[in-house]
Design a protein around this nucleic acid. Structure first.
Lengths: 207, 207, 207, 207
DNA sequence: GATGAATGAGAATTCATTCAT
DNA sequence: TATGAATGAATTCTCATTCAT
């Protein structure tokens, strides 16, 4: 009698297996995309590396770009949450400093994972980000972080609308500098760009 | 000694022909890249549209990405120069205002040529820009513009090094906002982003 | 113990279910074959439309062509019987007129169900027809119709062998004209082909 | 000096080569289609057999069905012309006898080339036939044959319209009987079907 | 310089069928 | 009986690049 079929705690073997395969494909794709680039990675390589059949790929993903999006969103989500945890852990230190700490955490992560940085830079559009965070339960935490920042800016006497734009600008500016300075070393190393970036962020936030 | 190289007026027929073919290929590629995207444009389409043979393409360009770079650099160069001419034409109005006018001109051009914006956004890296402007005689004017801005910043008491970074930040911030607001309408239309952008540029330049 | 197995009225639940599933598959396949064509219909689509699992298909049918045959034979059988009923209902009017009435009924059905016509035309071979009608109890009525025609021809003084051939020729000629004139409108609409067809049938039967 | 480049008699080497490749592909495809069936023949097999690269196939044909059509039309054309030549060679013997001789010649060809018969039967639609013969210069002779028959029928006092239909009926009836009796041996061998078929053709033509 | 036929590796995708549950 | 995840062979088609003319 398979009575415990319905409980949340236990998964049927087939469900376990499903997750396993999807995970293997995810990991294989991530490794290949970051090391060889998306365009140079064939699905046949992904499945080979994952140790599954070609058809299996299409059981879980529509095509190559489907899995790219998934990777980018999941990884971004993870970093955001980790960054927020770091901020919280460090105790209250005023909004502006929190923002800078948050940004700094993300920069450090990406500085040490250049491949991820490249992948995110080329494939993370605001739209993708937005739609994933808006609609998918799994990304609740990331969404909350964004709303937290916007709320705080409102407390500084900025309208919600303006607050969103400011957040957007900080994100885009950071993103551009991070990519260019880490990957291209242009116009300078990230460590030498940070002071100016943080100064600029302060200027942007503070009226 | 290529003696007739110096005369401006006359070109040998074969040289004329050469420029003609290269120009046709350039135009055809530009049209196709902007309308169908780079990935979806095959070289066979470019040569067909240009009315030349397939092999001819390889006489002028290494591969597809070679011509992409060329298009992007040439078009950017043109816009920069036009923007500068506009600034000069309007007379002296202080450095900060000149910068904003310069930026505004570029934004307006791209606002009305979204296809070009897309092409530039996806394919204009600082590195490409830099190396083209540094090394190729043809882009002298654009290089001069950049040095002009850096000089001006130095006059404001900023070190040359810092000046370069500031310029870079303005460029990147503008670029990110232009693309996102014009193409994705996120977080808002470009017209509604401009005030914040210009305010931020002022903040960045002014100590 | 499955006691109610013997009664005609009641079927065991599993038997009911069996027929239900087979019926659903049959209907789904028929719809898809007629609307998308056989080659463009995948088994996965059939089972999806039928609302059963993929494996279930193989419980009832060997493969796609198995179900095609079944559909064609069943549908043809139905039409033949309806046509005969029509002839009988109209009372005795001589053999030749009966044949023409029979043919006419079938033409009218197919004229209003072009998709079925296409399916039958491409997949109804004399061999399939013959073997189904000879061997399967279910098609007793259709077989009787054929023998009735042959008997009648024999009464006209034609040998049984010759009679079969004549029947065959009428069927093939009708079939070719029906398809070509209804589907391709070539060489003319079916309504304009009918007089000549019926005239020819008369000529073929009458010595 | 390549003076003889323009003459009709000599072909440039590349043109010769082109015809050679196309011919090889044609032959390879014909062999494979007739021996294995169209559905079971992959393009990779065709090119392998023809000894050319895969891409070359797509230089000459759109896809598999493009070459099928070509094969069918060319082969049909050849047979029609041969049949007509036979009729002419045998001298004048009255229209009806000529028609029967014509039909008989075709039957004999197909009786000895069952594979071609299968291919033609499944893929020769009146539409294909018609459009090829109407539009392509190459098939002038076949078109003339058809018009010759229609003219002759008109001389028998039949309207042009009616004549076309009669021709169509003869073609379809013959085609159906040929296929069924040769391939399926149903309802009888072609030799035993011929008398009835020719009798019927006579009936159809003669008022 | 110019041509364009030929190449052939390789990419994406499909799908009938199996089989453990 | 019924399921549906997994398989992987098979297929079509593309396209950058070469090279003999």
């Amino acid at each position: 009698m398979k009575e415990d079929n319905n409980t949340n705690k236990k998964m049927s073997k087939s469900e376990e297996n499903k997750l396993l395969k999807e995970g293997k494909l995810f990991e294989a794709a991530y490794d290949l995309f970051t090391s060889k680039g998306i365009n140079n990675t064939a699905i046949s390589e992904i499945v080979k590396k994952a140790g599954v059949a070609k058809g299996t790929f299409y059981l879980y993903f529509q095509d190559k770009y489907d899995i790219v999006d998934l990777i980018v969103v999941r990884k971004s989500n993870t970093i955001l949450i980790e960054a927020m945890e770091e901020v919280i852990k460090s105790g209250n230190k005023g909004f502006v400093d929190s923002v800078i700490m948050f940004v700094d955490y993300i920069i450090e992560v990406l500085r040490h994972d250049k491949k991820l940085l490249k992948l995110i830079h080329k494939n993370l559009s605001w739209g993708l980000f937005d739609s994933a965070f808006r609609n998918i339960k799994q990304y609740d935490n990331a969404r909350r972080i964004i709303y937290y920042f916007i709320d705080e800016l409102e407390h500084e006497g900025i309208t919600k609308d303006e607050a969103e734009k400011i957040l957007f600008m900080i994100v885009e500016l950071t993103s551009a500098i991070v990519y260019s300075s880490i990957i291209l070393k242009e116009p300078d190393e990230i460590q030498n760009m940070k002071p100016l970036l943080y100064k600029t962020i302060r200027k942007i936030i503070q009226n």
